[in-house]
Each structure stands twice: as C-alpha cells, then as structure tokens.
Design a protein around this nucleic acid. Structure first.
Lengths: 248, 248
DNA sequence: TGTACATCAGTGAACGCGCGTTCACTGATGTAC
DNA sequence: TGTACATCAGTGAACGCGCGTTCACTGATGTAC
C-alpha cells in the first residue's frame, strides 16, 4: 500500500478534487431541496459536466447520498469533539473543570452545528429517506457524538459523583434494559447502569430539543430559544445524576 | 346554515365519501413511499379515475398533504385523549389516581400511535417537506397532544405537589424564557414557571425518544425498547418535579 | 309535478418538465518494457 | 528516454419513466319557477 502522502498522479488528484466538488454541490442542493429532491442530473449540470460523468465517481444516487450522510455524521462529530477538546484544555489549565459545563458545551455544539446545517441535520436525524437503507459505513461516524457526550458521565463517575458503590444501580432497571446497559458498558465505565440509562435518555432528549426547534414545533411556543435550550440541557443533566441531586 | 345532520343530496354524500377515499389511498401511499413520494396521479390511478378528477377535491398536491397532516395530528390527539380519558375514568373510580401513571399512559399512547403509523408520525414530526409550508389550520390539531400532557402537570399543581408557594419558581428562569412561560400560563395553571418549562422539556424528550426509536438511532443500542421507553418517561417526570424529588 | 337552466363530477388529451441509468465512443493520462 | 498498450474520464444521445397541472368537453345531478 502506498504511503498516505505519496505523490499522487495528476489523474488521482483530479479525481479526489472532483469527488469533493460533487459532494459540495450535492450538499448545497440538499440544503435547498431536501434529500428526496437531490438529483444527480442537477448536480452534474451545475458542475458543467454530462450527467453520465458523475457515474465515474458515484455508482448511483444512493451511493452519493451515503457519502453525504457519512460526511454529515463526521462533520457533527468533529464539531462536538472540537468543543469538548476546547473544554478539556481550559479544564486542564484550571486544574479540574466544571463537568456541568462540559455537558453544556457538548450540547451547544450539537445545536450550533444543526442550526448551521439544517438539511444535513435533517438528513441524519430526520425522517429516513424512503427506499434508502443506510449501509454499515455510517455506524462509526454516527458514534462519535454520543461518545463525547458519554465522556462527561464517565468523568463524573471517575470523580466519585455516583457514590463509592461503583456499579450498583441506585434505581433497579428492568431485566432487558439492564442487559442492554451491560452491552453498552464500555461506553460508560464506572457509571452505574441506571445513570447510564438516563444518560441515553438525556442524549436522546438533546436531539429531541434540536429537532423540535429546527422542524418548527416551537413556533409560537418558545421564543427564547437559546435560553430554553440551555435550561433544558441543565435540567437533563440533573436528571442523569438525579438520585444525588437532593441539594441542587 | 344547514343543521349538521341535514339530509344530504346524493351528490354531497358522494363527494364526502370520495374525499375520504382519496385521503385513505393517499395515506397508504404515504406509508409506502413517504411524503415526497406522494403522487396525485398514483392516487387517482388506484382509485380508477382520471388524474384530473382529483382536482375537484383538492386544489393541489399541497392541499392534499395539508389534509393528511391535519388528520394525522387529529388522529394522534384523539389517541392520546382517549388514553387519558380511560385513566380519568379509572382514577375517578379509585378516588384519585396515580399522576405518574397518568403521565406514563399519555406517553405510551404517543409511542403506540407512532409505531402503528410511522409514516404519519414522520409526516408531522419528521423533516419538513421541502418547499411545503404548513398553513395555520394545523396549529389547533397539533395542540391537542401537548394539552393532554400538560394536564398531568396542572393536576399535580392542584394537588399541591409543587409546594404551597404557588407561582414562585423554585429555580429562577432567564428573563426571555420567563416571558415565554408567562405567555404559556393558561396551559399550566398553578404550575410554577420553572416546572412548566421542564414540562416542555419532558414533552419534547418524549417525542425525541419516539423519533430515535422510529428512525433507527437505537439500532444496535437499545433492544428492550418498551422497558427503556417506560424508564425514560418516568425519569423525565421526575425531572419535572425535580426539586421535590429528594426521596423519590 | 314538470320543465329549463345552472351546477358540478369526471374524462382524456395535452403541455412541459425532470429524473436515473446505460452505452458506444473519443481522447487524454499513466505504465511497462 | 521513447514507444506501445492499457486504463480511465468525460461525452452525448437515448431509453423509459413519472410527475403536476390545465383545458375544453360530456353527461349526470340539483334547483327555481
């Protein structure tokens, strides 16, 4: 296998560039017409090439769509990771750092990204495209964001916020759910299973908030969007650490 | 204006029936091809009529879509109201009734309806149809479900679960959000503004849960769907009454 | 009750459009000797 | 370094399809007198 930075042939370089260009145009079309309105012909037209030429780069419309989905997950994941890295830097400087802040920073990064790229958000968290089945390539990129959000929890556990009991659930989980949490153990090291389950609820809820805001369910309901989102994110965090929250 | 049950002319009756038939077929097509794949021509074809004939019933594709959206909101609202009415009947018989149960019953009704009619759910809570703007007729029907969910909260307030302080927020809200909650006052009689705000978070989160389950975000994550949903709904309720939750 | 007219449902052809995908081809770029 | 061949990008025409919407029309139903 050639080294990553091997001198590319002109052909290979051109190919890589056009692949990116096609995706860029497709992304813009997505933003204007939605996923089901994405057309290979329109993309080709805008790039000034024959529609058949696009088939040298993507074998079908679905394959182009998959590439956009993977890119979107990656883009969101990178944004959240960057926000978390910034928090970690500050925390290291301050010798510790506020975990609630860490959670909030991740939540805000999700919301920011979604507001900045609403159609990409809709592509990955909105209604599934009818007749399209996402291949397994999307799983990895899709995991990046929840992993960061889980990190705040595991650090909370490391700091002993869930009590020295360690793995003993503070609220018993029904058996099937307990088994699920067992499987997810690696993502929640040291976190009691019931708190981890609530963590998944909180993760879900954050995307619920963003979805409602973006898809118009808050029109005529909530005007102070940012204030509400922050308040909600904080309340959800309290829900996760709930049994210890007596004095909060 | 004619009385509601006035003897209709044959023409009027036929019109009403065909209107329903068109919507029924359209709903089925929706379930198979999604909102953007809904085609007037295909609906007409299945009904054995000329595609132009549909225009006697709906002035455009968008108008048909609006009718389906209104129907969907109404269908969900009716399901949740029915579940709540059943709870109220039991509660009256038992002389009170468990409010947590009331909340749970409403949440489950939302989920059940969504699992039974996934494309209708996607139509109203999924990605907006590109180029389609929902008219104001949808607002009323859209309100039915949150109204029921808010009822559990107001009854909790009536029972004094938020303390005798009444309207005094237990956690201060930022000013813009406080103003929003002021506006929403009628829906949350007697409920402290901060608890009402958390109520909106919980409402949002429930739909977030349903959306994640339905749109595949829990694939390979949560297998015990029902157990998880119930657990989540309970945790969210505790979040709403949080400041009093010390012993729960 | 009977007739004359107005209303309405439904037809079928047409307009003008865009789509995904295939295929035989030309000409440029890359590679092996 | 130079030549011969293989690979690949891009073209343009074509296939076969479906769509929303309009329009002039026929014939049935409803209504006013």
């Amino acid at each position: 296998m050639a080294p990553v930075n091997a001198p590319q042939t002109a052909r290979a370089r051109a190919r890589a560039e056009l692949t990116v260009a096609i995706k860029d145009v497709a992304r813009r079309h997505l933003a204007e017409h939605g996923a089901s309105g994405l057309s290979l012909r329109a993309v080709a037209r805008e790039l000034g090439m024959a529609s058949s030429a696009v088939y040298r780069y993507f074998a079908s419309r679905d394959e182009l769509l998959t590439a956009l989905i993977v890119d979107s997950y990656d883009s969101l994941g990178a944004a959240v990771e960057a926000a978390d890295a910034a928090w970690q830097k500050d925390a290291a400087a301050a010798g510790g750092g506020d975990l609630a802040e860490r959670w909030l920073v991740a939540c805000r990064a999700v919301r920011r990204w979604a507001l900045d790229s609403p159609q990409e958000y809709a592509l990955i968290y909105g209604s599934p495209v009818p007749g399209y089945r996402a291949p397994d390539d999307t799983i990895g990129p899709a995991t990046r964001t929840p992993v960061v959000m889980a990190a705040a929890l595991t650090e909370a556990a490391a700091r002993g916020m869930f009590g020295s009991g360690g793995g003993v659930p503070l609220v018993p989980l029904p058996p099937g759910l307990a088994a699920d949490m067992e499987t997810l153990g690696p993502f929640f090291e040291g976190v009691p299973a019931d708190a981890a389950a609530r963590g998944i609820v909180a993760w879900t809820a954050v995307f619920g908030l963003v979805t409602f805001e973006l898809f118009g369910q808050y029109d005529n309901v909530i005007a102070a969007r940012e204030e509400f989102f922050d308040y909600a994110a904080r309340a959800l965090l309290l829900m996760v650490v709930m049994p210890n929250a007596g004095g909060v």
